[in-house]
């Protein structure tokens, strides 16, 4: 058990998880930053956000993804950056699960914001995969937060420095 804890909170692993998760979120933010109206359309399709708030979310969320992702890659402000990403992942999982529950097939809008011509069944299958993927990323967030909890405060932002 102690060995497992040591492995899971090891700097070597933490840095790689940080960089991987940061890169995923930077990649996810770029198409949304380039075309906010399409992303607003994706948010609308979820039928969970009041109309007045859709555009504001479509404008701000990609920047949150980008800044939090860059912070994780650079190893600065890693706890709040990981927490913001974790909060977004929880929101994504809940939003997709609600739509799975009401059989409303939606394009995830995670990495691609063009409306692909997919059938209802294909979209539903994709939504299940997205929930699974997001849970996986949530575990990555948990690893970062857990390891930073055990790290002395003075070494809080040193994680990136251990990359050889």
């Amino acid at each position: 058990m102690t060995n497992l804890k040591k492995i899971l909170t090891d700097d070597w692993l933490t840095v790689r998880v940080q960089i991987a998760l940061g890169a995923i979120f930077v990649a996810a933010s770029l198409p949304k930053l380039l075309d906010p109206p399409s992303f607003a359309h994706m948010i609308y399709n979820y039928r969970l956000v009041p109309g007045f708030a859709i555009n504001a979310i479509a404008l701000v969320m990609p920047w949150l993804e980008l800044l939090a992702g860059v912070a994780l890659i650079l190893g600065i402000w890693r706890r709040p950056a990981a927490s913001i990403i974790g909060a977004m992942l929880v929101v994504f999982i809940v939003a997709i699960s609600i739509n799975l529950g009401r059989d409303n097939a939606v394009n995830c809008g995670c990495f691609d914001i063009t409306s692909a011509n997919k059938s209802h069944d294909e979209l539903i299958a994709e939504m299940w995969w997205v929930v699974t993927r997001d849970i996986g990323m949530l575990l990555m967030v948990a690893q970062i937060l857990w390891s930073s909890k055990l790290r002395p405060a003075s070494r809080e932002d040193d994680a990136v420095a251990v990359v050889d």
Partner: peptide, 15 residues
């Protein structure tokens, strides 16, 4: 590529 800061989608919550 612009968006109005406040959206106007009256049916945003209708499934």
């Amino acid at each position: 590529r612009k968006l109005a800061p406040v959206g106007d989608y009256p049916r945003a919550l209708e499934v």
